[in-house]
């Protein structure tokens, strides 16, 4: 168990450095800061991957069985998603927002009580490959929504500046609002099918384990709420009067729903889904 916790500690610091570098790149606009930031992201991602690998060997099952492990997976997916985006679209300014979010997630994971960090045996209900597929796909979805969240905030800021014709140098370096809009759409185009797959595989697992694929428990219901919000986003983009700003707000509210779904439901509401 110690190995995975050590890798977590390393990844924690690496992600902090990564976030600082991207913010530095945004403020000072030096090529070398930007390149170092990208390299650092790879290093952090490697350490992150090693947490998952070590965890798998230590526990004997897929490394997403509780809140701590799933946070590690979430950050991992965010880092990969961001790197792909940076590679295709060269938008390092976005890294300042996204990698900061990733580091915040690492902080949250590190604050979890010890019992989440220790290895626990899977109880009978959790021993199913459908569970593993369910958790995996859901968290890829969350990562997509997280990046879209960052992009939507940037969109609203940039859009405001463009409307007013103002010139704020820090925001000038943001990509154009139309680009930010399309990039957040792309992220949700990944996030939404993965979330849907997550909901459906979760239902399939529930059906195998307990005989009901849907029981309106708070976790299931909140995943549906999140789904409704992002479905609204997808339709808002093709509805007059709802493109642009309102759609961006839906993306932001959607991610707040994701946060509640992920953390709030386990700690604030009672129910079956107390673990992950």
């Amino acid at each position: 168990m110690i190995l995975s916790l050590m890798f977590f500690d390393m990844a924690y610091w690496f992600y902090l450095i990564t976030a600082i570098l991207y913010i530095g790149n945004w403020i000072f606009r030096r090529d070398w800061i930007g390149s170092t930031a990208t390299v650092m992201t790879f290093i952090a991602l490697f350490a992150n991957t090693m947490i998952l690998v070590a965890r798998t060997f230590e526990s004997g099952h897929a490394p997403f069985s509780n809140l701590y492990e799933s946070m590690v997976l979430f950050v991992w997916a965010m880092a990969i998603g961001y790197l792909v985006m940076e590679f295709k679209y060269k938008v390092k300014v976005v890294g300042a927002v996204v990698m900061t979010l990733a580091f915040i997630a690492m902080i949250a994971a590190s604050k979890l009580p010890y019992r989440f960090q220790s290895i626990e045996r899977l109880n009978p209900a959790l021993q199913s490959i459908w569970l593993e597929i369910h958790v995996f796909t859901t968290f890829i979805g969350y990562a997509g929504f997280a990046i879209a969240f960052g992009l939507s905030i940037m969109y609203l800021v940039k859009n405001r500046m463009e409307e007013r014709g103002a010139k704020v140098s820090l925001i000038d370096s943001f990509p154009q609002s139309s680009v930010l809009d399309e990039l957040s759409y792309k992220c949700i185009m990944w996030g939404f099918p993965f979330l849907t797959t997550g909901i459906i595989t979760g239902a399939y697992w529930a059906n195998n384990a307990w005989g009901t694929y849907w029981s309106w428990d708070p976790k299931e219901t909140w995943s549906l709420i999140t789904w409704f919000i992002y479905a609204a986003y997808l339709h808002a983009r093709v509805t007059r009067g709802w493109r642009g700003k309102r759609a961006a707000w839906l993306s932001i509210i959607g991610f707040l729903a994701v946060i509640f779904l992920y953390w709030g439901v386990s700690f604030v509401l009672p129910g079956l889904h107390a673990y992950a």
């Binding site: 708070p218 219901t221 909140w222 709420i225 919000i229 609204a232 509805t239 709802w242 009672p270």
Partner: peptide, 24 residues
């Protein structure tokens, strides 16, 4: 109407939230 779609989806979301706050 797509506006109806948005209204229904968001209404379902709000209503479902109430259902998780009030124990069923």
């Amino acid at each position: 109407s797509l506006k109806l779609t948005l209204t229904v989806l968001l209404s379902l979301a709000v209503v479902s939230i109430i259902g998780t706050v009030v124990e069923q």
